[in-house]
Design a protein around this nucleic acid. Structure first.
Lengths: 222, 222
DNA sequence: GCATATTTGTCCGTATGTATA
DNA sequence: CTATACATACGGACAAATATG
């Protein structure tokens, strides 16, 4: 046979459609709560309805879409409980990964590259680039745990969180204060002070959660 | 509107088909590596090919099936790396959940019920019931973290692990030694000795992993 | 190594039931 | 409350690719 398993997003039309929808979701091209008609989306993406339904299945499984029986699929609206849950998971996984990571793990290079990118983007006031660099930094932290399952979980969580960010305006102040903290976390880890790095990261995530929750409550008083 | 969102496994035929396949997978009715023909499975489940393909998408996304383009879907054969990864995730999540759980968490009732069930099943030498009770015990531990995301991740991991167990014969000795350990872990947690409970659980998971890995290497020398 | 047969990938048409205007 | 629109599910069809002899 001599096959190597999987590049999971293969070149099937359903996978392509799912990937395109995923991009539209995290870039805010599709807004939370919006209904996605099978016919119009299938025509828009140039795939059949059957193929689109396969894509809908996986995105629903990723919690990016919600499925109301006989009423269609809608872009998920992240609940406050879901946001709190996400931060709970982030604290548990990221801090533990940082705490128990061996020194000079390959993923530390990704962390370094991410903070460098964030610093450069901040210098040019490109806040959305800062945001993606920040997310890459945290993804690299998770990679310290050397676990495919955790990497995949974190990818899902990140996408869901970006959906929540889409509910807020002014996404810049969601990332601005944390660039310097990322630098500090990285330096502590590289210096072998894992415990201090993890403690700083936990405090970091707690304040970040507070900021988001407050902004969320401000936007949606209902 | 007055809708409440989601029971995720709705009553759609695709979800029903996925659930039936999921059961066949964890009960060993479908063996790892086996190819699943679209036509024969769709006839067997009484659904159309298009509907079955939606179910395949979901199960593939859960890593229970693997998809080879233009060659069909196969029951996943858990790799040694995957098993090691699963135990890494279990140690990280379960120990942390146990360590940081508040006293008298509602899920502790589930833990108690699971150990009682395991003890009863062991008394009657029903080892598969012991196995399911053990899994329920660990699932309850994860529930201590109060996180939907972690609960879902753990459900996936459990199913994947059962697939790996299917590769081994004599599944009894995989669960027999751990019933008493579960009791000890529960008692320590209920006594407020979370740190000791977590330490015992970690050692527990490490020896369990060693056992499985050894059995796995013994069965499949290739 | 090559030709063939089987299976997947994808689409369309259609019938039925459900939710919404 | 009726009617329309849409999701749900099915079966058939064809092209492309893989697997088999």
């Amino acid at each position: 046979m001599a096959d190597l398993d999987e590049a999971d997003d293969s070149n099937s039309r359903a996978d392509q459609a799912a990937e395109r929808l995923r991009r539209m979701l995290i870039t805010g091209d599709l807004v939370p709560g919006q209904r996605l008609s099978e016919t119009v989306v299938s025509e828009r993406l140039g795939v059949s309805r059957n193929t689109l339904r396969e894509a809908f299945r996986v995105l629903t499984h990723e919690r990016l879409l919600v499925h109301k029986p006989h009423a269609g699929v809608f872009v998920a609206v992240p609940s406050l409980a879901s946001i709190i849950d996400i931060y709970r998971v982030r604290r548990l996984i990221e801090c533990q990964a940082l705490l128990t990571a061996p020194a000079r793990h390959p993923a530390s290079r990704r962390m370094r590259a991410a903070v460098d990118s964030a610093l450069a983007s901040r210098a040019s006031d490109d806040w959305i680039a800062v945001g993606t660099a920040n997310m890459e930094f945290h993804s690299a932290i998770v990679a310290l745990a050397d676990s495919d399952h955790l990497d995949r979980l974190y990818a899902n969580i990140s996408a869901e969180l970006r959906l929540a960010f889409g509910l807020l305006d002014d996404p810049d102040y969601l990332h601005r204060p944390y660039v310097d903290r990322n630098v500090a976390v990285l330096e502590l880890y590289l210096a072998g002070e894992s415990a201090e790095a993890a403690a700083l990261l936990e405090d970091y995530l707690l304040t970040s959660e507070r900021t988001i929750v407050a902004a969320y409550a401000r936007r949606l008083p209902a």
